[in-house]
């Protein structure tokens, strides 16, 4: 009996490590990223200096932040479309309402977070307590936010204060990209969140709501908090986008809708919830941004890039679904 058991256990461990490796979105995507980066370096030439690195990090961060937030919601089994609206709204607010100087910049950051939090809380309330479908309710909040963005600024324009545009995008102390540092902070914060009861509850709710509630997990509160946290991430993404583009546009967030879900899918988070994590999505976002840059530097015209994005979107969701199901051990 004991021999039988131990053999079974060791089988399981071997099996598990293979599955974990295959199913670990972050790892697979990171390898892909390195390969693509090599291609990009070959096509572009000068990519290793501080300035090109800094530019790449700056271009990547907004999408990475949005994808991190969208992942938290998706882990609970929901879809959050409000990302596009929140980013647009934050962008136009930063571009029109915030003056120059450090205090104003701080206020701008706070405003971005507050907007994201408010929208996230509305989403969370509608989904968790209102029992609405996540796609439908976040579609509604997305529309409201895009409308408000147009009310604030009805055409591309405005001006993001130099303080924000410079300090959030230039290398810190001239040595390390600020965007990279922010990404690291977000990763660390996620590791912290994951180690709380709330973090465990996110995964629990996404895998099986009934079992989670039988295990004593507060399902509704967890969902509500997940949407709120997602909203904060979108707010931050909007803030960083404003800093990078230094201008406002009421449709600044629109491209993020599709790209965010592509990043999440590439990063190996299951669209059914419960498997994956924001770190994979952030690498997935980096991969998408790098892909655009690589295509651009390879001289592919922009309409192909758009077509590529659509195709990659579909592929990513398909592949992501397969890898997530491998990770879940459901690959029958």
């Amino acid at each position: 009996m004991s021999a039988f058991v131990s053999r079974k256990v060791s089988d399981q461990t071997a099996d598990r490590s293979i599955r974990l490796w295959l199913g670990n979105g972050a790892l697979v995507v990171s390898i892909l990223y390195v390969l693509l980066f090599a291609f990009y370096a070959a096509a572009q030439g000068d990519v290793f200096g501080l300035q090109p690195m800094n530019d790449l990090a700056n271009d990547t961060l907004p999408l990475a932040l949005a994808a991190a937030g969208g992942t938290v919601v998706m882990l609970t089994g929901g879809f959050d479309l409000s990302v596009a609206g929140v980013i647009s709204l934050v962008n136009v607010c930063i571009a029109t309402q915030i003056g120059d100087g450090p205090l104003n910049a701080l206020w701008g950051l706070l405003l971005a977070i507050l907007i994201g939090l408010a929208v996230g809380m509305v989403n969370g309330a509608l989904v968790a307590f209102g029992k609405l479908q996540s796609i439908a309710s976040t579609l509604a909040t997305m529309i409201v936010c895009s409308g408000l963005a147009i009310v604030v600024l009805d055409a591309p324009g405005g001006n993001v204060s130099d303080f924000i545009a410079d300090n959030a995008t230039d290398p810190i102390l001239g040595v390390f990209p600020a965007a990279g540092a922010i990404a690291l902070v977000i990763v660390l914060l996620w590791l912290v969140v994951r180690s709380t009861a709330f973090g465990v509850a996110i995964y629990a709710v996404g895998a099986d709501e009934t079992a989670a509630s039988l295990a004593g997990v507060p399902v509704l509160r967890t969902k509500f908090l997940a949407y709120s946290l997602g909203g904060i991430c979108y707010g931050l993404a909007g803030f960083m986008l404003s800093a990078v583009t230094a201008t406002g546009s009421p449709s600044a967030g629109t491209p993020f809708l599709l790209l965010m879900f592509a990043a999440i899918a590439i990063g190996g988070t299951s669209f059914a919830g419960g498997y994956g994590g924001p770190i994979g999505s952030m690498v997935g976002a980096a991969l998408l941004v790098l892909l655009q840059k690589a295509l651009f530097s390879a001289g592919v015209s922009s309409f192909y890039t758009v077509i590529f994005q659509g195709a990659i979107m579909i592929l990513a969701v398909l592949v992501g679904g397969i890898s997530a199901s491998i990770a879940a051990g459901r690959s029958r």
């Binding site: 180690s195 009861a197 509850a201 995964y203 629990a204 996404g206 079992a211 295990a215």
Partner: peptide, 25 residues
Amino acid sequence: SLLPNLTVAANLTLPHPLKGGLGLA
């Protein structure tokens, strides 16, 4: 009422994981 995506340890300590220093699980 087990969660299939969590480890045995995480399942055993649901819904309140044990906290170490820093107040984190």
